[in-house]
Design a protein around this nucleic acid. Structure first.
Lengths: 211, 211
DNA sequence: GGCTTAAGTGTACAGCTGTACGCTGGATTG
DNA sequence: CAATCCAGCGTACAGCTGTACACTTAAGCC
């Protein structure tokens, strides 16, 4: 029961995971990656792969799950930063952009498999993003007094804008990245301000919606 | 010079293009499509493919260009609808969603290759979307009196939200699609309203930005 | 200390891929 | 009419893929 065996197994399992992540890049996606390629990179025989995963799809789903863990720890970090410093929007964007810069490959994985070939992948990524939206929605509903629907609509918009900015930042030179970041921040402000106004509006039973 | 020959050539060229488009679906992307597959579907020998395109990438770029044509005709249509009926946001979303529903495969192509493996593809798609942003930006700047920067920032946000909604609509049942459409419209309203407010704000030299 | 279990190996095979090459037959040209 | 061109074909080949199968060898167990 000491687990010399189990320990070694876990070690090569991690080697496989790391090999797959390492091979991700702008010019190499997970779906274009072969089982043999991963095995080669991990330093094992192709057939040994099966001792750890049923097939490449199973490995991919594991990667998505792992990236979910990373993302959620990121969110917790952002929240504590907000509680210390205040500015929700600025902090969120900074934190997210930091994540994209530090984990471009994980982000690329999510980005690509979100619209990829495998239904299981698409679902897994969609679930991660949905988490993101819901957590932000809860936070917003609690801070201001939006209705649940309004909070979710706003949160969804914010997440969409930030996520997309991250995607564009990936391929951008550092100087243009700052401009993008600024535009994104403005867009988030517009959205938040509009939501607030519309909320007050509803409360007063007036309508700006026709505008 | 009558062109029986050239005519036939154009015909099989179109057959190739149509074969590629027809084979696109939720579970089959362009990048996962082989040259032989396209040739089979088009009813020609694999090697005949080379009489028309250098390789699959060249065919892909052609498809992206064609989709650009479709998109731009779409925009013109939307604009004339707006001039007749008025509501910018509602009309834009309706038109775009109609496009996505009628040309899911073209939209999938753009969506996937935007984050794909090939730099040429990514650039081509980015250029199409940039067109979109710029045309909308011009339109906004002309209708209201935003500064060019503000107009572009707003346009970019709007395009991002609509494009993403289209992507999500692809995999959604019809009943949930309506809810998504409604949320998207609200988000666009928030964004537009916030931009307007912020613009007036700037003009008066006050600041809501700290909010 | 012997028996069992299982992670990792090497070989093998069928099926797919892109594409080089030489040919054919009908349209085009002079 | 004869000469040329060229879209489309069939064959061929090397290189890659996933994975079935039988094996070794070291750890775990009684």
């Amino acid at each position: 029961m000491s687990g010399t065996r189990a320990l070694q197994k876990e070690k090569t399992r991690q080697a496989i995971i790391q090999a797959a992540l390492a091979h991700l890049s702008a010019d190499h996606s997970f779906s274009s990656m072969s089982l043999r390629e991963v095995a080669r990179e991990a330093g094992i025989a192709p057939t040994s792969f099966y001792r750890h995963f049923d097939d490449m799809e199973a490995l991919g789903l594991t990667l998505v799950d792992e990236s979910g863990v990373t993302l959620r720890s990121l969110m917790r970090k952002a929240r504590s930063r907000i509680e210390r410093k205040g500015s929700v929007i600025q902090t969120s964007v900074d934190t997210f952009m930091e994540f994209v810069e530090k984990n471009p490959n994980i982000f690329r994985l999510l980005l690509r498999e979100r619209t990829g070939i495998s239904p299981a992948f698409r679902d897994a990524v969609a679930r991660e993003i949905q988490h993101f939206k819901e957590e932000l929605s809860d936070y917003l509903a609690q801070e201001s007094d939006y209705t649940p629907d309004q909070a979710f609509t706003l949160a969804e918009g914010l997440v969409t804008l930030v996520f997309n900015a991250g995607a564009e930042a990936l391929d951008l030179a550092a100087d243009k990245r700052d401009a993008l970041k600024e535009r994104t921040i403005m867009q988030l402000r517009y959205l938040t301000f509009g939501a607030k106004a519309c909320h007050l509006d509803d409360a007063l039973n007036v309508s700006i919606k026709a505008s």
